[in-house]
Design a protein around this nucleic acid. Structure first.
Lengths: 181, 181
DNA sequence: CCCCATTATGCAACAAGTTGCATAATAAGA
DNA sequence: TCTTATTATGCAACTTGTTGCATAATGGGG
C-alpha cells in the first residue's frame, strides 16, 4: 500500500489536480515511485471516500482541472504509515533471471541489451547529478531539504550501481566460452 | 512476464517438483526472484498447457511428488526472452516515499525502522559474502559459473548500497531540526 | 497399527499494476 | 467563428502478486 501514501505526500508538498499529479509521477516523483493516470484517478477517488483528501473547486478560468488537498485525517494516516515498521523489499530484477538463464542455455543477445542499458544508466546518472548540482548546491539547508537530497542520492547510488554492474556483466558475457577458462 | 521464465530457468538448472521449486524460491532463487507456492503451481499448470514443460511420473517410493522438466519449446522460449530488449526497471521503494513524507510532515519513528533495516542488510550482506567464499572461491571456472557468480555479486552490491544508504539516512534523520541548520 | 504432524498440491478472493479505450472539455490555429 | 488537436478524467479488462484456506498423502512417533 504505497500509492495512496505517495499521493498524500505529493499533495502535502503541493496541492494539485489529477493530471498534474500524473505529470509529476512521470517526472520528479517518478524517480522513486511510478503510477499511471488510471491508477491515480482510481486512488484519488478512494482517498476522497476515506476522507483523507478533498477536492477543491476548479480555479477560475480553469474550468475542469480539479485540485486536491490533504485533510487532517490524511496527514495523520501518512504520519502513521511513515513511522511503522516495514520489511525491506528484496532485490528482484528480471536481469538477474536473464543472466541465470543465459548461464544455462548459452549465448544470447543479452549482452547487446546490457550495452544499451549501460548507456541509459549513464544518461540517468548524469541527469541526477545535474539535478543535484542545480537543486542542492550546498547539500540542504533545512531538514526537509536534506531529506529530499537524500532521496536523490539514493537515485545516484542506484544508477552508479547499475553502471558498475552492467560493465561487469558485459565483461563476463563478452568472453568466449572456453571450457577450462 | 518473469515468473514463467524464472521457472523455466530453475527447471533447466535442475528438474524438480512444485514443492521443491517453492523451497528453491524461498532460498537460492529467492535471492533475486520471489514467488509463493500458489503462484508456482498456477504457473506450472500454464507452462504445461503451453507445451513448455512436462510432468514426469512420480518417483517410486515418492508417491505424490511430481517433477517437471523443460521441453524444447520451453527452452526456445527462454532463449528468445533472455535475448530480447527490455527497459530497465526504475528504482521503486517505499522507503523513498517515506523519507519524502517525513520531510513534509516532520519527525516520525522512521529512523527506528531504518536502524532495524541496517541490521538486516548487514546480516544479509554477511550471508552473501559467506556464500561467495564458499561457492566461488576462485570466481568462476566456466562461463556458467561466472554468470552465477555475477548474479550473487549483484546481491552483494545491492546490500552494500542499502547499508551505506541506511547509514546516511540515520545521520540525517537523527539531526535535530534546526531551522538555519 | 493408529494417531498426529508435516508436506504437497491447489482453489479462491482480493489488491495493485498494466494496457486499452473512451468522452468531454479546453486550447490552438486558420 | 469553426475545426482540429490536445488535455483531463475515467471505465474496463487483464495480469501478477498476496493472503487465506483446504484436502489428501506421507512420515514419524507411540
Amino acid at each position: 500500500m504505497s500509492l495512496p501514501h505517495a499521493l498524500l505526500t505529493a499533495l502535502l508538498e503541493r496541492p494539485c489536480s489529477g493530471s498534474e499529479l500524473a505529470g509529476r509521477f512521470d517526472r520528479s516523483i517518478g524517480f522513486f515511485w511510478q503510477a499511471t493516470h488510471q491508477q491515480i484517478y482510481r486512488e484519488l477517488k478512494r482517498l476522497e471516500e476515506l476522507g483523507w483528501i478533498t477536492a477543491l473547486e476548479p480555479e477560475a478560468g480553469r474550468g475542469r482541472k480539479r485540485a486536491y488537498q490533504v485533510l487532517p485525517a490524511g496527514r495523520e494516516e501518512l504520519r502513521r504509515w511513515t513511522g511503522e515498521a516495514q520489511e525491506p523489499k528484496p532485490l528482484r530484477d528480471e536481469l538477474m533471471v536473464r543472466l541465470r538463464a543465459e548461464a544455462v542455455i548459452g549465448p544470447t543477445d543479452l549482452v547487446r541489451d546490457i550495452e544499451s542499458r549501460l548507456a541509459q544508466h549513464l544518461e540517468k546518472l548524469a541527469l541526477y547529478q545535474e539535478i543535484e548540482r542545480r537543486d542542492f548546491p550546498d547539500g540542504g539547508v533545512t531538514r526537509q531539504r536534506e531529506l529530499q537530497h537524500l532521496v536523490l542520492q539514493a537515485g545516484v547510488m542506484a544508477e552508479t550501481l547499475w553502471v558498475d554492474f552492467c560493465r561487469k556483466a558485459i565483461a563476463v558475457l563478452s568472453e568466449a566460452d572456453v571450457a577450462t577458462h
